[in-house]
Nucleic acid binder design. Structure first.
Length: 287
DNA sequence: ATGCCTGAAGGGTTCAGA
């Protein structure tokens, strides 16, 4: 079973990239973020194209901003939109949808950006993460949380920590909120597979950041023990960030073995190697 | 001039993103 997550930065604009990518990678479950489409508009836009490919759709969107969805061709049951008891800004935003696909509770999430540390929007981000944690704590262990977390878990997940001083995505409180979610027993499957590699999922559109591989790893797949034990491969599909009209995020993909019948034993982490990093560069700076 | 890109809304410019 192949599960993917992709912040598409507008489904409408990304159609020419999404459909060929679905045909190329053939994921069984796809979590989308920043669809920027109301549910009826999404159904109108790609309902037929997805049905042709065998996907059912659980969408939770709104016009212009935010929006998440789950596509599945291995079943899509018990759909739940939004985060129970989650905060709004000030009203609830379309940032989460969950469904059960082939026995796994799948969450597609688009965590608020935070904008500026210690701002109202930053407080909203922290409250939203706390509410997400409660939802996950009440759910099954056979869960997978996919999405744009808008947090780089460690300094190894940004091209240069100095470039992000005073910015969101790297502050201790955000990272602690994410760590508390992971402490429920969720494995960051890409980092566990590539413990010392330079792996990013987002690159700013500007100033050739992608070309120079100056990015961040903020799109994560977090898997509970029963799912993490089935991980056969986990990687970031940089190819989808190349070429004409890409999203500024690349898809993250994980391949799972078939669910075992009995006890599969402990999850064994892969061996470690020293971190290799290239020369630091600054973000584009204002004058 | 955080807006060197991109997308969306609502008009011909502003806001949001990370």
């Amino acid at each position: 079973m192949r599960v993917a997550t992709w912040n598409v930065n507008s489904l409408k604009q990304r159609m020419p990239r999404l459909l060929p990518w679905l045909d190329q990678r053939r994921p069984d479950v796809v979590c989308l973020q920043e669809t920027k489409l109301a549910d009826d508009a999404l159904a109108e836009l790609l309902g037929d194209a997805l049905a042709e490919r065998g996907y059912e759709v659980a969408a939770h969107g709104e016009a212009a901003w935010n929006g998440v969805a789950i596509l599945s061709r291995v079943g899509l049951e018990d759909v739940e939109t939004g985060i129970a008891n989650g905060p709004g800004f000030p009203h609830p935003e379309a940032r989460a949808v969950a469904a059960t696909c082939d026995g796994i509770r799948v969450h597609s999430v688009y965590v608020p950006n935070g904008r500026v540390p210690d701002s109202d929007h930053y407080d909203y981000k922290l409250a939203w993460l706390a509410a997400l944690r409660e939802v996950l704590a009440a759910g099954p262990d056979a869960a997978i949380v996919c999405g744009d977390m808008n947090i780089a878990p460690t300094d190894d997940d940004v091209f240069d920590p100095d470039a992000y001083i005073g910015q969101t995505h790297v502050t201790p409180r955000e990272r602690e909120a994410l760590a508390e979610i992971q402490a429920l027993g969720l494995h960051d499957v890409v980092r566990e597979r590539w413990p010392n590699e330079r792996v990013f999922s987002y690159w700013d559109y500007r100033a050739g950041m992608f070309h120079q591989d100056l990015g961040m790893r903020i799109d994560l797949i977090l898997a509970g023990d029963p799912v993490a034990a089935r991980v056969r491969a986990a990687w970031i599909d940089r190819h989808a960030r190349k070429g004409t009209g890409p999203s500024d995020h690349a898809p993250v993909i994980v391949d799972l073995d078939e669910a075992p019948d009995g006890d599969i034993g402990p999850v064994v982490p892969p061996p470690s190697n020293p971190v290799t990093k290239r020369g630091a560069k600054k973000l584009p700076q204002a004058r």
